[in-house]
Amino acid sequence: MTETIFKRPKYLKDAVFHYCPGCGHGITHRLVAEVIEELDIADRSICVPPAGCAVLAYDYFDIDVGEAAHGRGAAVATGLKRVLPDRIVFTYQGDGDMAAIGTAETIHAANRGENITTIFINNGTYGMTGGQMAPTTLVGQKSTTTPGGRDTKRDGNPLRLSEMLALLDGTIYIERVSVTSPKNIRAAKKAIKKAFQIQMDRLGYSLVEVLSPCPTNWKMSPVDSCKWIDEYMTKTFPIGVIKDNSENK
C-alpha cells in the first residue's frame, strides 16, 4: 500500500512551470495555493499578477485572475477590493514591479490600509528581461546593467521597501521570509497564511516579502543561490517579522 505524502495543491493547475530550474517562484506558488486550499477561499479569491516572470501566474493559479500593468498591481487590487470587499484580493509582484516602477501605487495602497495582501518576490534582479539591476540588487552585485557590480555612487542603494512600508499606519503585518530550506519554506508558508488571515479578518494591508533564488540571472547553481541568500542577501534583507500590528486591531 502506498500513501501519498506530497502532491500538487488543489488550486495549482496541472501545468508545467515555465520557471527556470532552482527558481523560487515555483515554491512560492505552491505555498500560496496550499494556503488558499487550507483557508478554503478559492471561490472568493482573486489574484493580480505582475509584469515580470510571474506574469504567467494565471496559467498556474486555478482561481480568478486579473492582470495588471507593470507596477500597478496595488492600484488594480484596490479597485477590485473596493467593489468586492468580501472577496480575497492579493497581488503577486516582483521587486522591480513593486519597488521601482510601482513604488507609488504600493506605498499609497498600503498607506490607505487597503485590505489586500501582497506576495512580494525579492530576487534582486529583473528576471524576465534578462538580469538587469533591480532596486533590491545588493551593493557590489553584478547584473547586466551593473557589469562591474552595483556601485552606490552611481546606482544608489538597495531599497528596503518592506521596512519603508512598516512605517505606515495603514500596514498591519509585514514579514520577510526566504525559500532556501525546508525550515525557511515552512516559515514562509506560515507567514503567507497569516497574511491572508489578516485580510479575511478585515484588519488591513498585509505583505510577505519572499527572498527568492534566481540561479539563471545570478549565474549560480540552485544550491549556491540558496546559500548566497542565507549568507549575503539576508545581511541587507534580514528575515523575520518586520511589523505585526494584528493583535492591536
Partner: peptide, 12 residues
C-alpha cells in the same frame, strides 16, 4: 496613473 489602474480593477 494610479487612478486609471484603480478603474481597471473596479471595472474587472
Amino acid at each position: 496613473i494610479a487612478a486609471i489602474n484603480m478603474l481597471i480593477g473596479a471595472s474587472m
